[in-house]
Write a protein that binds this DNA or RNA. Sequence first.
RNA 1: GCCCGAGUGGCGGAAUUGGUAUACGCGUUCGACUUAAAAUCGAAUGGAAUCUUCCAUAUGGGUUCAAGUCCCAUCUCGGGCACCA
Length: 824
Amino acid sequence: MDRYNPQKIEQKWQKIWEETQPFSAGADGKDLPKDQNTPKVFLAEMFPYPSGAGLHVGHVRNFTIVDVLARFYRQQEMNVLRPFGYDTFGLPAENYAIKTGISPQEATATNIKNFRKQLKRLGFAIDWSREINTSDPEYYRWTQWCFLQLYKKGLAYRKESYQWWCPVDQTVLANEQVENGHCWRCGSEVEKKKMKQWFFKITDYADELLSDIDQLDWPDKIKTMQRNWIGRSDGAEIEFEIISEGEESAGDFKIKVFTTRPDTIFGATFLVLAPEHPAVSKLVTDETREKVDAYRTDALKKSEIERQENKEKTGVFTGSYAINPATGEKIPIWVSDYVLMGYGEGAIMAVPAHDERDFEFASKFDLPVKQVIEKPDNSTDGEQCYHGEGKLVNSGHFDDTDTSDAREVVTAWLEEQGVGKQKVTYKMRDWLISRQRYWGCPIPIAYDKDGNEYPIPEDQLPVLIPEVEDYKPDNSGRSALAKAKDWLKVDIEVKDEKTGKTHTETMTRETDTLDGYACSSWYLWRYASPHDNQHAWSEDAIKYWAPTDVYVGADHAVAHLLYIRFWCKFFADQGYLPFREPIKTLLYNGYINAPDGKKMSKSKGNVIDPLDIIDEGYGADTLRTYEMFIGPYDLDAAWDPKSVGGVYRFLNRCWTLCFGGSAGTGSKKQAESIPTLAIRHKTIKKVTEDIHRHSFNTAVASLMEYVNELYKIGAKTEDLITLAKLLKPFAPHLASEMLEKLESDDIWPTWDEKYLKKDTIELIVQVNGKLRAKLSVPVEALEDQAKLEELAKGEPNVQKFTKNGIKKIIFVKKAKLLNIVAAK
RNA sequence: GCCCGAGUGGCGGAAUUGGUAUACGCGUUCGACUUAAAAUCGAAUGGAAUCUUCCAUAUGGGUUCAAGUCCCAUCUCGGGCACCA
C-alpha cells in the first residue's frame, strides 16, 4: 500500500481542477447557470488586500469557512457562486512605491499572482473566471459610475471641514496619526486646516439603516455596534433668544440647542456652545473677546482624542445671555469643548441638576443649579445629580408631571410657543471620502476656472490613474495625481442654461481619490457579472445570484458593513437592485493567534506561515481541516502545532481505511458481521446539521468518531464512500482520491431516521436529579411509564436512596429519563 | 464610566429546546509491534476518597423534580463605545 502522501495527491487534484474548472458558477462562461430553477447560494469572504507577505493563517480560516460551505452546497447539487477578488487600493502599495520606486500597479500585479498561486495550493473551490481587482480600470470605471449616480442624486457633495495638517510633511493626517498635537512621523506641531472635502450623504439613510438591522441574520455583536454607531436619539430642538450685554435684544438672533430631556427645561440655567460654533464670534463682547478667541484657538489645536482624555471641564463666558423660554430667566452663554460641533446643533442647554457633565461644569464655574425633578425615595442615584425619572418640581404648571410623560407634553407646549419642536439626531456623520493619495480610485469630477464642479460624463469613464514618477504628496496639499500635468486638463462639454448651446471648456480634474471603502461597497454585485462592459452589474445576473447568502469576515464591523448596506439601499432606490439588504447571513470569524496566545506579528517572530505547514508534509487538507477543528469559528484561537499532528493522524486513518493497510485488528474479526448503518446515518445527520449551523469543529469531531468506530467494527464500502463525501468539504483532495478509488460520485448523502432508532434504549434513572442507575429497556417500554417505574424501583441503588419513601416520579420521555423524588 | 460577549480537566474545546457534565483532539501513562527509535495499533486518563460514594462547569445566593444552561449579586478576561446633550 502507498502511504498517505498529501503532496502527491494534492498536486494531482489541483491540476485536474485547473484543467476542468469544475467550480464555474455559470454555464459555458456565462454569468448564469443552465438551470435557474435550481436553488442558488452566493457565498463570499471579505476580499483581502493582497499583501506582499502572501496568505496568513487567518486568511486560511476565513476562506476555508466559505469553501466548506461552497463545497457542501455544491455536493447538494445547488448552483453555487463562490468567486474571489482583491481589494488592491491602499496605503501599503503607495508607501512601498515611495520607498522603492516600484509602481503600485506593478507591485499589485505581482502580489495578486502570488496570492492566486497560494489559493490554488489550498484547493479552494473558486470560480476563477470571476476574479476581480478594485484597481483594475475595468473595475474602477464602475466605481466611478457609482460615484456619479450618488452625485446625480445629491448624495455625493463637497463641504469645508477641518482636517489635521502637518506643515512639515505637507500632508493631511488622520486623527489617529496625531499624537499630543504633534505629527506621528516628524514630531512637528500640527494644525487644523479647513479644507474642502468630498462626502457621501449616508445620513439620509440613517433611519432605514437602523431599523433594518433587526431583520439581519448577523451576529448580535455587529448589530449592536452598528446601532450604536448610528446612535439615534429622540429629543427636541429648542430655540433660545439672545440678549447681548447692555442691549435689550439682539433681534432675531437665536441659538438652537438639541436635548433628549426637554422635560428638564425649567432647570436649564445656562447654555454652552462648541468652540467652533459660528455664533460665538457674534456673542463675544469687547471684554471677553480676547479670552474667548484664545480658548477657541487652543481648542482647535487639540485633537478629539485629547479632548476626550482630558475630562476636566474648561470653558469661557461669552459675555452674552439667553432667555430660557420656559422660565423667562436670563441665563449666561458659555463656550466649552465638551460640547461637540458635529453633533446636534453644536450647542446645549445645560441642566446641571440632572446631567453629570453640566453639573461638573456648573460646579467648576460656580453657575446656578436648579432642581426640577424630585428624586424618588427608593432611588440609589447620585446625591447631587439625579438623572433618573421622577415627578417634576419647580416647573410651573408642569409640576407633578412624571418625567417620562413630560418629555412629550413639554415638547408640545414648546411647539405651541413656537420655540421648539421634536427632533431626531444621529451620532453618525456623513462619510468623508476624499483622500489626498495617489493609489486610489480617482474621483470623476472636474472644475472650471471658477471652481465649479462638473461630473466627468459617463462615456468618458474610466478616469484613469495617471502614471507618475514620484508618488509622494507635495506641498500643494493635493495627491500625487496633481503632478501629472497633462492628465490634469480635461475638456468638458458645457451646456449654457439660457441659450441651450454647448461649448467645450478645458477644466482641471479633481486630484483626490476615493476612500478604499467606496471600492468595496459594491464589489459583491460585480461578482454576478464581472465581465459586463456595459453595466456595473447585469440585471439578470444580479436578480438570480444576489443578495449574498453568506458573507464571511473578521473585520470591518461598522465601516464596510455599514457602507455596503448604504449603497445597497441607494441603488435599490434607483431601481438597480431588487433588494435592500446586501447580505443575508454574516459570519464573523475569530482570529488565530500564535501558540503563545499573542497576536502573530513579524516583529515578535511568532508568525505561522500556512504554506510552511503544507510544505512540511502536512498538506493543504490537514491545514484546512485543522483550522476548522481549532474551535468555534467565531472565537479567537491559539495555533497549536501538536493538534495539527492530530488532524493529520485523522486524515491518515481515513486514507488507511480506504487504501488498506493496518487498519485496526478489529476489522479483520468483525468486518462483515456488525451492521454499520446506525453509526453511518448518525454521522451523516450530525455532519449535515453541524455544517448548517456552522459548527465546523464538531462536524470534524463527529467524522473522527466515525473513523474511530470504523476501525473497531470494520468499514464497508458504503461507509468509505459516506466518509469521503462528508470529508470532502474539509479535505477535498484526499476525499477526491478516495471517491475515485471507490468509483463514486460526491453527491451529499442523506440519512434515514429509521436507522437511528434502536431496539433497546438506555433509561436514565435519577433520584433527586442525580444519576443512580442506567437500565437497558426495549424501545416499546417507553410507552409504559408504570412498568418503567417498577423497574426503576427494583434497582438496589435506587432503593438505597429512597429509604424514606417516594414523593413523586417525573418521567421525561424525550430524554429517556426517570427522576424519582425521594422523601426526606 | 456605559453597552455587549465569555469564564467547563494539565491544554484547545463538547453538551443544539432546562434532562446522563467533560464528546473530539492534544498532552500524559501503560501495553503491542521493533535489536532500538520513530511511525502505527490497543488501553487508561476531572479530583478525592471509606471503591461506588462524595465533590467539581469563576464566586455567592435563588428558581426547579432536575441548572454549565434560567434569575439576582460579585469577581476576572476579551471586545466595542466613550463628554453624542
